[in-house]
Amino acid sequence: MRWTGAHYTDKPTVEVRTWIDAPPERVWALVSDVGLMPDLSDELQSVEWLDGATGPAVGARFLGRSRHEALGEWSTTSYVIEYEPGHVFAWAVQDPADPSAIWRFRLHAADGGTDLSEWMQMGPGRSGLCAAIDRMPEKEQKIVFVRMREFEHNMTATLKHIKKLAEAG
């Protein structure tokens, strides 16, 4: 795990990686299926493609509904911003020009299997976390740190689930 930045405006990032004993094609089928993601996440509850889209392509949109004990329930619209089949799948949350977050999966063949990484950037656009920061600006660094640790924990769990599914065939 690696994360950088301490303030929301720093656009902190976190990245987790794993090696999977499965071919990239099998791993790609899992990471590019956004409908599968709620089964792999405690926070993300549901996902649905919008505008008649049935899968990822640059510009396609999907609606995600999430729930967090401290933050409540919310929904966001995400825009696919990178899509290179078999290699990269990334989306911006809310406004692609000023996203509240960017998420990215990258994979490549390595050592007879697949290296998979999940990366995310918080901000620069406003998110639900900004309300907490607005209420307690003196605690911004702690708020950002705690949320980034949650992301790191959830991303590690997601990759663990993807690894298990891919290796099971």
Rank of each mutant, 00 (worst) to 15 (best):
L107A: 03
A110E: 11
K142V: 02
M120G: 11
A132Y: 11
W103I: 10
E138M: 14
R126W: 00
D134E: 15
M120K: 03
L116W: 06
F105V: 06
S100T: 08
V144T: 02
D98S: 05
W119T: 09
M136P: 00
R126D: 09
G113S: 04
W103G: 10
D115C: 11
A110I: 05
L116G: 05
E138L: 12
K142P: 00
W103V: 05
S117R: 12
D134I: 12
K139H: 11
L116D: 02
I133T: 06
R106C: 12
G128R: 14
I102W: 01
A132E: 05
R135V: 03
C130K: 01
F145G: 06
I143C: 01
D134W: 12
Q141N: 06
R104G: 04
L129C: 11
P137I: 04
F105W: 08
P124H: 00
G123S: 07
D98C: 08
L107H: 04
I133P: 06
F145S: 14
P137L: 03
M120A: 14
D115R: 12
G128L: 14
D115Y: 07
L107D: 06
I143R: 05
I102V: 14
M122T: 01
S100P: 14
G123L: 02
I143N: 10
R106L: 11
D98W: 11
L129H: 05
D134R: 15
A101D: 04
G113Q: 07
I133M: 12
W119H: 09
D115H: 13
V144H: 01
R126M: 05
K142C: 03
E138G: 15
K142A: 08
P124K: 04
H108S: 01
